[in-house]
């Protein structure tokens, strides 16, 4: 690699990571693909676009045969994560107040919430899998555990707010 190709390579790396992410390619696989490009152009001294084609098109080639989640799957994940947070919070609230929620004990709702939420949490976690550099084991992009946290936190905050409202109006 020389001084002229380094910025081109950095840009290509970013574009390829984004394009493969959009195609739901697992993080480990993305890391492999990026490392292959970097290693190859380091040997040939080529421009990455000349050697591999535009990042978007190369990503499409790599993702061929890769099953992509349909939009409704994302919608179900979001809806079930939200519902789960809501049920857990409502159940916990009912349990704390020693009341029933819709005719059932609070802990039952907490349990139902967990059953609904765990598959969604697993899906989100899997999709945000780390992009690991196979050569060094380091993260290629700063990993973010926030996806799951935000998804669970929003309904919990909503219910806590409702809880506060109930306590105030009593």
């Amino acid at each position: 690699m020389n001084a002229e190709t380094a910025p081109a390579l950095a840009r290509y790396r970013q574009e390829l990571i984004v394009a493969l992410r959009l195609k739901d390619v697992p993080g480990d696989r993305i890391g492999e693909a990026v490392a292959e490009v970097e290693s190859h152009v380091a040997d040939t001294g080529e421009d990455p676009v000349a050697a591999f084609g535009p990042a978007k098109e190369y990503a499409r080639t790599l993702a061929t045969g890769q099953r992509r989640d349909p939009w409704w799957s994302t919608a179900i994940t979001l809806a079930s994560a939200g519902t789960a947070g809501w049920l857990v919070a409502q159940g916990a609230l009912a349990q704390l107040l020693g009341e029933e929620y819709r005719g059932l004990a609070g802990w039952v709702w907490v349990l139902v919430g967990l059953v609904v939420g765990i598959p969604a949490a697993v899906r989100v976690q899997r999709r945000s899998s780390r992009v690991r550099d196979p050569r060094t084991g380091a993260d290629m992009v700063p990993s973010s555990p926030w996806g799951v946290v935000v998804l669970v936190a929003i309904p919990v905050v909503l219910v806590l707010a409702a809880w506060g409202l109930i306590l105030v109006t009593r």
């Binding site: 292959e36 490009v37 190859h40 000349a50 591999f52 084609g53 190369y58 080639t61 790599l62």
Partner: peptide, 11 residues
């Protein structure tokens, strides 16, 4: 043979 052709084959 370009990298963009070769690596998908290897993979």
């Amino acid at each position: 043979v370009k990298g963009g052709t070769l690596y998908p084959v290897l993979n």
